[in-house]
Design a protein around this nucleic acid. Structure first.
Lengths: 143, 143
DNA sequence: TTTGGTGCAAATGATTTGCAACCCT
DNA sequence: AGGGTTGCAAATCATTTGCACCAAA
């Protein structure tokens, strides 16, 4: 199991708790789980888990590039399975109902990346958040 | 003064506190002020201000499209003067030192916008956050 | 056995809310 | 006058931290 090696290499231990956190987030790919949502889901499989462990585990898994942190402007940090550059995806946020959709696409073209390079900034990755109306809410507005 | 009319139209009142909050954020265009930073700055001109007023005023000014809320993944909400579509700008976030730079450009091309339209989403505006290394930190890494 | 890891409870920080007093219109 | 606003303090929420105990390696 690669996960275990990845941890051990850094002197970290792979515990039941860490494994279940990973499983839960992967199982719910496409949702954007907050820390407390993850806490609730982990409890279903491991009722003894403590909230503090969740809060200590999540940033750790993020640093190891196993999870990605996302911030959807709703007052809490959320996580999703890590997506390598080739699968970069972005978020469409409905300003009316709050629904979040994903678009899988490399939204920045060569030109745009050039503009950024000109600012002396070396980009590792990027995230685009688009605010607008989802189909449902756009139709309601017409009524 | 248009500001006053804009408020009165909605049955809202233009108070000294609200005016000073606007002034402070506009004066510091280019910085990305957190609520408590705004609180401190407002106090310089109006020492009686209460923190709760700041927290009530900021979302109000945002709804009125006088300010924009930004979330730079550092655990607090920040604000900057509202930028109409023509002046859309985005943020470069240094993952090492945390510095935030701005790029003024419409980073999404026609093609990319088309991709989003195909998702049945009508975009009002969007925000791009790019994570990477600023010039200074990139140079330090070489050392 | 030897650390790193965990649960729990208390501490922090950011933001919200109830309420009486206040002040734009 | 009258209702929107404010300051203050208490309440909430998300997240962090100290510490004794537990468990991977």
């Amino acid at each position: 199991m690669k996960l275990k090696e990845q941890f051990n290499q850094k002197g970290l231990r792979i515990t039941k708790q860490r494994q279940i956190v990973m499983e839960v987030v992967e199982k719910h790919k496409g949702r954007h789980l907050s820390s407390s949502e993850i806490f609730e889901l982990v409890k279903e499989n491991y009722s003894g888990i403590g909230l503090a462990t969740i809060y200590r585990t999540l940033p750790l898994l993020e640093k190891m590039k196993l999870l990605s942190k996302i911030c959807l402007d709703d007052g809490c940090v959320r996580y999703e399975p890590y997506a390598p550059k080739e699968q970069e995806h972005h978020h469409l946020i409905c300003v009316k109902c709050g629904a979040v959709y994903e678009v899988e696409a490399d939204l920045l073209g060569i030109e745009e990346k050039q503009i950024i390079m000109n600012n002396h900034f070396s980009t590792q990755n990027y995230m685009v958040k688009l605010y607008g109306y989802c189909k449902t809410c756009a139709e309601e507005d017409v009524v």
